Amino acid sequence: MRGIALISLAFGLGLCAPAGALELTLPAAATALSDERVAMDSYDLPTGPYADGQMPKESFEGHVTRQSWRVAAQGLTSLQLLAPLREQLQDAGYDIVFECDTLDCGGFDFRFETEVLPAPAMHVDLSDFRFLSAQNGPDDHLGLLVSRSANAGFIQLIRVTKDAQALPVKPSTGAVLPGIAETPRPLPSDPVGVLVAQGHVVLGDLTFETGSASLGEGPYASLDALAEFLLDDPSRRIALVGHTDAVGALDNNIALSKRRAASVLERLAARYGVPRGQMSAEGMGYLAPIAPNQTPEGRETNRRVEAVLLNTD
């Protein structure tokens, strides 16, 4: 069992909130999927279960932050995700307004009446999800939604407050959450060795902003190794090939996958000094899947950028 990452959310607190930051503790395998901040927006916070064709909500206006994480862990239950977060919220002074579990929430109807970030930023299993709404004084409200898949847990936090202060996220270390079998994010220990031996390698540690071609800041061990490999011999050439899942039109997916590959090329050129002549960027869209597109896990696996070795002379 590995340690955990301390996701420190430095909340801008309302008038009745205690001073200081709210710290949410997530497993080390937690990966941020979305972090959206809007200075003036609204959020319809569920305050009760879906019943008799309707769901009670209360609308709040102000600074809205929408965040989500994926926790790579097998055998994880939704309660194991929710319980530690609920306790931390209460310790920080939040009152739980409403909490429910799957069918008690209203099942399918609750899920589709509740604001959920679009995939891949959030995944909800209709047979196992939990939700709670909480408030800390009159100007600080949030909705917490958790769910899981066979190999991962998912956390979504939507918060609205009168304070427009951003919510920085920074990792640290801490204690271990019980009952969670964690797995590392897949990346070959020797990506260049795989590239030379097999002719291609998935750059599995790359992250992109949801629905965009913007490559995350990194650092990325795969790009460190790839840049060193290319700079060692100017005759080496690679193609960077983007791939998507099967959601959406083919032409749009091909365009997106090529833009993502181009973002990787530009990072290698601008940050590492790799000559652009040693690289090309291509996009395959969903034409070359390596996993079934019928499951969230398969679609996530198919969203990737690969390096293809063109020559070693």
Rank of each mutant, 00 (worst) to 15 (best):
G242D: 06
H63W: 02
G3K: 15
S280H: 00
P188Q: 09
P219A: 03
R159F: 01
Q278M: 03
Q135L: 07
T102N: 10
A30T: 02
S189I: 13
Q165C: 13
F60W: 08
T25F: 05
F11E: 15
A29F: 04
T244D: 09
T77L: 10
A19R: 04
A164I: 09
P191H: 10
F208D: 02
R304N: 01
A73I: 00
Y43I: 15
T77R: 09
L310V: 05
P138E: 02
S189C: 03
W69Y: 11
E282H: 12
V146K: 14
E61Y: 14
L250G: 07
G14E: 04
A10T: 04
V274R: 08
L309V: 01
T312H: 01
I290W: 00
T173W: 10
D41R: 14
F154L: 11
H123S: 14
E228D: 15
V116K: 09
P27N: 04
G179K: 05
E99R: 08
L250S: 13
Q54C: 08
Q198R: 10
A239E: 15
A166S: 11
L89Y: 00
S59L: 10
G53N: 15
G137S: 02
V160E: 15
V241T: 07
P289S: 10
G174R: 12
V192S: 01
T102S: 10
M284I: 01
L309Q: 01
A291Q: 05
R299H: 04
M55L: 11
L240E: 13
R185E: 01
P234M: 06
D35L: 01
A181T: 12
M55H: 07
T102C: 05
Y286E: 02
R70L: 03
G218S: 11
T65S: 13
V124M: 02
G285D: 07
Y220V: 07
H123V: 14
A30K: 03
F208R: 09
M1W: 12
T244C: 07
H123Y: 14
G143P: 03
S257V: 04
L79M: 11
T207W: 03
A72P: 07
L157N: 09
H200P: 01
V124T: 13
A83L: 15
Q67K: 07
T173G: 13
Q90C: 00
L223G: 06
V169E: 11
A119R: 13
H243L: 01
A150S: 14
V194F: 00
A134S: 07
A83C: 08
A121Q: 13
L256E: 01
D233Y: 02
A307Y: 00
L195H: 12
E228M: 10
S149R: 04
Q80I: 08
L177G: 09
T77C: 11
R299A: 05
A225V: 02
L13A: 11
E282R: 15
I254K: 13
D224T: 04
P186V: 09
P184N: 09
P56N: 03
M279I: 10
Q54D: 11
G20R: 07
L22F: 03
L203C: 06
D101T: 04
P46D: 03
R259D: 11
T102V: 06
P171F: 08
A19L: 15
K57N: 02
P168Q: 06
S189K: 15
Y50I: 12
M284E: 09
D95Y: 08
Q74I: 10
A19Y: 06
V160A: 14
R70N: 03
S212M: 12
A164H: 02
G283W: 03
S172G: 15
H63K: 00
